[in-house]
């Protein structure tokens, strides 16, 4: 891990200051996002996740603190705000409800067109984004409203990918999809990540998904970063996570229960594969002993 591409410094945000509705959504958040990493942000509803990610591309201005993109404050000028919008791509929850153009192609092209790119470049990016997101060519000339739910979601994500952001931020990208749809979306995101080396930030409720793909995780609670680190580090605080109302991965729960029953597993376990390994090691150990 080298230079952070996005650096969040002492970020605080207060909604409706000076009114009876005043609420502090974020308090002194420090977070770094490195080039080419996958960061999972988890937190309970109302923990400030959505507020945080909307700061990343200057949709919301910080009450105090700043966000640096490659060392430059993104809220410095109109120009810097415009720039960060395309360099940090933000996919909202249920992005399929934002489709509006007559054809899929035009909708994907909306972002690049706003960037005032030449027409050939726009076309190239649309094709590329469609490829990343598994949007078949024959769909490009159809109306987005004729597509299935999963297809619409992928078209919407392609609309953000078409801007070729260096950081792709997704808010619950898999919410409301069936297991197959979830799998496909995750593959699309990973394909973009692997081919372009873009950093990915995924906001999620699902510990399993975060655990499987994220290299690093940040846990938000009451507007502060309560924990951050590798999945191993974060899941080793199982009890604390449960107190925050966050479910630990099923395999971690099983490991904890086994521990209470007197079966000690080595290391932190949070995927099925790790569980198998840990159990095999245990089995092996016993066999050696006997």
């Amino acid at each position: 891990m080298d230079e952070p591409i996005l650096k969040i410094e002492k970020l605080s945000h207060v909604y409706s200051p000076g009114t009876p509705f005043e609420t502090t959504a974020l308090r002194d958040v420090d977070l770094e996002i490195y080039k080419g990493e996958i960061l999972g942000i988890i937190g309970h509803t109302g923990s400030g996740k959505s507020t945080l990610i909307q700061h990343l591309n200057a949709l919301i201005k910080p009450t105090s603190g700043r966000i640096l993109l490659n060392g430059h404050d993104i809220n410095e000028s109109k120009q810097s705000v415009r720039e960060v919008r395309s360099r940090v791509g933000l996919v909202f929850q249920y992005p399929e409800y934002q489709l509006f153009e007559e054809t899929v192609k035009k909708d994907i092209a909306f972002g690049p067109r706003n960037m005032k790119l030449p027409q050939e470049e726009i076309d190239r990016r649309v094709m590329e984004a469609a490829r990343f997101c598994g949007v078949e060519e024959e769909l490009l000339d159809r109306a987005p409203f004729d597509l299935s739910g999963g297809q619409k979601r992928r078209v919407a994500i392609a609309g953000v990918i078409a801007m070729m952001p260096e950081v792709l931020v997704l808010d619950e990208p898999m919410a409301g999809l069936d297991p197959r749809g979830r799998e496909e979306i995750m593959e699309n995101i990973l394909a973009y990540h692997n081919e372009t080396g873009a950093a990915i930030v995924i906001v999620t409720h699902s510990m399993e998904e975060a655990a499987r793909h994220a290299g690093r995780m940040a846990v938000l609670e009451h507007g502060t970063v309560a924990m951050s680190g590798t999945p191993e580090e974060v899941f080793s605080h199982g009890e604390q996570l449960r107190q925050m109302g966050l479910a630990t991965p099923v395999m971690t729960d099983v490991a904890d229960k086994l521990c209470k029953l007197g079966v000690k597993l080595a290391g932190t376990v949070y995927t099925v594969e790790q569980m198998v390994d840990a159990l095999m090691a245990l089995e092996g150990g016993r066999r050696d002993a006997s």
Binding site: R85, F92, Q98, F110, G111
Partner: peptide, 13 residues
């Protein structure tokens, strides 16, 4: 509000 933010994220002004 939500839709406006989403389109702004795609560079709409």
């Amino acid at each position: 509000d939500k839709i406006m933010s989403a389109q702004k994220a795609r560079g709409a002004e």
